[in-house]
């Protein structure tokens, strides 16, 4: 298991109740499961629409983590959907 930092932005930050927290886990999927388990359904709903950066690169559930790494949780951007 490796340790690092997970950073929440915008709506994810609001639902997480924190801008960042430490993580322990081997993959992005592991860490997100732990984060979801610690919070309510509203947080999980936001997470379902987020993209994830692992050390600056977009990642998925199987993306491996490295010690001291940073996961960023990015909700959809303001103009990414809806009316134009």
């Amino acid at each position: 298991m490796v340790r690092g930092t997970i950073r929440y932005w915008a709506a994810a930050r609001a639902e997480a109740g924190t801008a960042e927290e430490p993580f322990v886990g081997d993959t992005l999927g592991d860490v997100l499961s732990v984060a979801r388990a610690a919070r309510g359904p509203a947080f999980s709903r936001v997470l379902a629409h987020c993209t994830f950066l692992v050390d600056g690169v977009r990642g998925g559930p199987a993306t491996p983590l490295v010690d001291g790494g940073v996961i960023e949780v990015l909700p959809p951007f303001a103009g990414g959907s809806g009316q134009v």
Binding site: A11, A14, H49, P76, F77, A78, G79, G80, S81
Partner: peptide, 24 residues
């Protein structure tokens, strides 16, 4: 710019509710 640049919009409404634009 609107679809790709990482900027988030948070709206507050007169009825006291709020939302993050872009989330369903």
């Amino acid at each position: 710019l609107k679809s790709q640049v990482p900027i988030w919009k948070h709206q507050s409404f007169a009825d006291g509710s709020d939302e993050w634009v872009g989330l369903p």
